[in-house]
Simulated assay, not measured.
Amino acid sequence: MTYCVAMRLNSGLVFLSDSRTNAGVDHIGTFRKMNVFETPGDRMMVMMTAGNLSISQSVRQIIAEHTTAAGRNIWNATSMYEAAQIVGEAIRMVHDRDAETLEQFGIDFNVSMIFGGQIKGERCRLFQMYSAGNFIESHDENTYFQIGESKYGKPILDRIITPETPLDEAAKCALISMDSTLRSNISVGLPLDMLLYETDTLAVTRFVTIDEQNQYFQMIRNTWGKQLRAVFESIDDPVWNAAPDQAVNVLSTVGQKSQPLRIKPPAQFGIPAGTPAPLQTLAQDEEGNHQQH
């Protein structure tokens, strides 16, 4: 599996990808999933891939070499939208060639991509590509895209990233998002590729491959965990079975009628249903010590 995230900001673009591929628990590999199409001074485009590796590699090769019937290719496209259409056409070409054969072997045509960059004369743009070759574009209401194992790293992005976020702050957020994913899913792994693109530079100027020894990423991993623990411990425990006007942080109030959904034993088992025991509650005294009731 994989995890890739990209952000479109007022100041530029951020791209981050892992490099783990998984064909089973005994076949783990490392393949870089970030590809750069660059003509310095004219265009800088980045593509990150998730899904079937053979499909994404075929798509990449076609993108680099193919010219459409209209004479357009990734190197002379006049806009990022036109470049995204070329990527979509490459996906459909691989689908037309390989999908039926893959299906015969029980393999789905599974590929997703993030594609973004800037062509001289227009703004930075960012797209998410799907297996059918269709795509959507990032706007201010949705400033980032994720592919692969996205759920673990999403909360921090939702809380932090806006179009006004500076590039370095966005890079920090992306690395925290990746760290959360690495800790929760073994199908995502180091090394990482990170590229920061500043609007109108039209060239790659800030790129790094991050491994286990990277000083900044190790600091992120250690500090983020400690800070999360500190914030967690600073939040009060809930107060049970108390009157809201007599205590703060009340979770269960006196006289609350809520009950669990109890499943009664079937009559044929001969087990008496009995009378439910009183719910055990937990309150706190003024010093915060727990008292059993």
Rank of each mutant, 00 (worst) to 15 (best):
H293A: 03
A50D: 11
G133H: 02
P191N: 04
N214Y: 00
A83Y: 14
R123T: 13
A69C: 00
K172M: 10
A174I: 00
D285S: 03
E122Q: 04
T281Q: 05
P191S: 00
Q118T: 11
H66C: 04
I55D: 07
I147A: 01
V5S: 04
R123L: 12
Q292N: 13
E137M: 06
F217Q: 05
P266S: 12
R72M: 15
R221Q: 11
N241W: 10
Q284I: 09
G255Y: 07
Q213H: 11
A273S: 12
N241L: 07
V250C: 07
C124N: 14
N10W: 02
E137W: 03
N10Q: 13
I161W: 09
G117W: 01
A277K: 14
T30M: 08
E169Y: 10
Q61T: 11
L190I: 10
D42Y: 13
I119V: 04
V5A: 07
K172D: 06
E212I: 10
E89Q: 15
A23Y: 13
E212L: 10
T181I: 09
P244F: 13
P191L: 00
V248I: 13
S56H: 14
T21V: 14
D98H: 02
G225Y: 03
M44V: 11
P40S: 15
A273I: 15
R125E: 12
M129S: 04
M80I: 08
I62E: 02
A243C: 11
N73C: 15
V204G: 05
G29Y: 08
W224H: 07
V239K: 05
S138M: 07
C4V: 12
D26G: 09
C124Y: 03
Y144N: 09
E122V: 04
G29R: 09
A230S: 15
D285L: 02
V5E: 02
Q291I: 15
S79L: 02
G121F: 01
D26P: 01
I91Y: 01
D193G: 01
I220D: 00
A230E: 15
W75S: 08
E82C: 02
I176G: 00
I160L: 09
D108K: 06
Q118N: 09
A90Y: 09
L13H: 04
E198G: 08
P163C: 03
H95S: 09
Y216I: 06
E89V: 14
P260I: 05
T49P: 07
S252V: 15
M194P: 05
